[in-house]
C-alpha cells in the first residue's frame, strides 16, 4: 500500500473517532464516516487550505440489501479539489429504519437537486433540506425504484391527464 493521501491524513487527524474506515481502492480516496460528522467533515474539506474541495461533484446512494453488508444503505459523496487536482469519496452508512442525514444545501446550493434525487430513488430523508420532494418521478409514484427490493418492471398506473400539467 502506498502512503495515505493528505486528505485521508487530515480527516483522520480531525475526526479520528468518527472515521470508520478508509481505503484507496484503484486510487480513489475513500473515507467512511459516521453521519453525525458529515457536515463538519464537509466544512473542513471545503475550507481547509490544504484541501480546498470547492466542488461537490456528486451525491448518490447504494442499497446493499443483496450483500451481507451491515447497515443497508450508504450515501456516497464525491468531492473535487481544483487547485490540488484531488478527488475524495465520503461514504455515510445508514440503517434502513433510520434513513435520515443532514443536508449539505447550506454549504453547497448544488446539493439541493442531488439530495432530491437520492430521496426520490432511495427514500433517504435529508434534514434541513428546503424542498425535499420527488424530482425525476411524479408525486403519485409509490416506492423508491432504485432500492433492490423494487422490481425493475413493476409498473404503476399512468396518471390521468388534467392533473398537474
Amino acid at each position: 500500500m502506498t502512503a495515505e493521501s493528505i486528505t485521508i491524513r487530515r480527516l483522520k487527524e480531525a475526526f479520528g473517532s468518527h472515521i470508520r474506515e478508509t481505503h484507496a481502492y484503484r486510487g480513489d480516496d475513500t473515507v467512511v464516516i459516521d453521519r453525525e460528522a458529515l457536515v463538519n467533515v464537509a466544512t473542513l474539506l471545503k475550507q481547509d487550505a490544504d484541501l480546498e474541495y470547492s466542488f461537490l461533484i456528486d451525491i448518490t446512494a447504494v442499497d446493499y440489501l443483496k450483500t451481507d453488508k451491515a447497515p443497508r444503505f450508504e450515501v456516497v459523496y464525491h468531492f473535487f479539489s481544483l487547485p490540488h487536482k484531488q478527488r475524495v469519496r465520503i461514504k455515510v452508512p445508514l440503517a434502513a429504519d433510520d434513513l435520515e442525514i443532514d443536508s449539505l444545501v447550506p454549504l453547497w446550493p448544488g446539493a439541493n437537486w442531488y439530495e432530491r434525487e437520492v430521496y426520490d430513488m432511495f427514500g433517504v430523508r435529508f434534514r434541513g433540506h428546503p424542498n425535499l420532494k420527488r424530482i425525476l418521478l411524479y408525486e403519485e409514484f409509490e416506492g423508491h425504484p432504485l432500492r433492490k427490493d423494487y422490481p425493475y418492471n413493476k409498473r404503476q398506473p399512468i396518471v390521468k391527464p388534467g392533473g398537474n400539467i
Binding site: I57, V62, K66, T67, V76, G110
Partner: peptide, 30 residues
Amino acid sequence: GEFGFYMVSDGSDRPYRVHVRAPCFPLMAA
C-alpha cells in the same frame, strides 16, 4: 462537462450499482 460513472461491483457478472454523474444536472439545478 464532467461525465462521471460511479460503479460498485459485488464480484458477480452484473454491476451492483451504476450511477451517472451527469454534467447537465447541476447546470439545470442552477
